[in-house]
Amino acid sequence: MQAQALSGGFADPATQSAHAFRSIMEAMARPGTLHGVSGALPPAPLSRAAGAVLLTLCDTETPAYLAGGANCDAVHAWLAFHTGVPLVGPSHCRFAVGSWSALTPLSAYPIGTSEYPDRSATLIVECPELTDSGEILTGPGIRNNAALSLPEVAAFQSNHALFPLGLDFIFTCGDRLAALPRSTKVCAPMGATEVTPCM
């Protein structure tokens, strides 16, 4: 357990975090696109992608919330050693990580203020699968439209309705990630059984 906490970080932090950041930035700039990230080997249940995102973006200045299964001793020890990130509840976090069901409801997280909409949380959502199909995305960063397998639709629609306030999402699965900023409009895929009109 102790040995596991000490290992699994970036072997070459400057270069590996630069690469990981470019993947995250491309994902956030182009919602619906999938990007590979490598270099992190976090303890279960964190995915390698979630581990890389945490190593790249979090430190002592960014309180984080570990939701559900992610809130375990092994993850605590790993994050403490590699990032020093302070752990807090959802209402004060800058980052949160966990499965969709553990992270929801979204009302728990800071969405920024009208003068400082950037002071909002970024949620790292661990997904059992992640593909560029499913819900239809439009908005900044997307040429016509894009598709992404989202865990649901309504929550992202209400989040988008808060714009310029709101949460931003990074979806992780294995060693891949995608992102959904608050600026993206989400619609249910054509022919979906459950009708969720565009917002």
Binding site: M25, A29, L57, P117
Partner: peptide, 30 residues
């Protein structure tokens, strides 16, 4: 000096600002 001069903590801080900037196009992130 570190790769690209800045220390890693500073880069993380700037990277976080860039991501929020991309999420709120046109808004100036301090």
């Amino acid at each position: 000096y570190n790769f690209a001069y800045l220390d890693e903590q500073t880069k993380r801080m700037i990277r976080r600002a860039i991501l929020k900037g991309l999420a709120i196009p046109g808004y100036q992130v301090p």
